[in-house]
Design a binder for these strands. Sequence first.
DNA 1: GCCAACGTTGGC
DNA 2: GCCAACGTTGGC
Length: 159
Amino acid sequence: MAKEQKFWLVKTEPESFSIQDLAKEPKQTACWSGVRNYQARNFMRDEMQLGDRVLVYHSSTEEPAVVGTAAVVRESYADDTAWNKKDHHYDAASTPDNPRWFMVDIKLEQIFESPLPLAKLRGVPALKHMELLRKGSRLSVQPVRKSEFEAILKLAGAN
DNA sequence: GCCAACGTTGGC
DNA sequence: GCCAACGTTGGC
């Protein structure tokens, strides 16, 4: 029997890969490559499981916001962009024989009708302890409490 | 193993 | 574009 479903948030810069881009992918599924932070990697490599649910967040944009949800459809495997010299995330220390970086595949569930801006989330008591809202938080893959995930769905008027 | 210098993230 | 917060690197 599968372990309990977990909840996550992943950040992406919409200028490089937005949730709309995810929607355009075959099967609306994409590999979440390019993560080059150990803590974020560890979450993907060690803890993300099939069926886990994911909030998608747009960062470094005019109005940073949670914009929709996705699900983990493939558990971690080596991030091959790390050994592509032309890739922006190339890392000579990672090789096919001894990969340093990992990724998962996620599939779009829904794009919120209206995005939930950071500023709005800050005012929500149920989200008071959310990692995303912590000052100086930079983790690009982070765990989310079930209660937080549900509160966000509720705010988005989604299910 | 400390920590200063540097690079990056990301809100504003 | 600014800059605070954070992660990484490398000299010692």
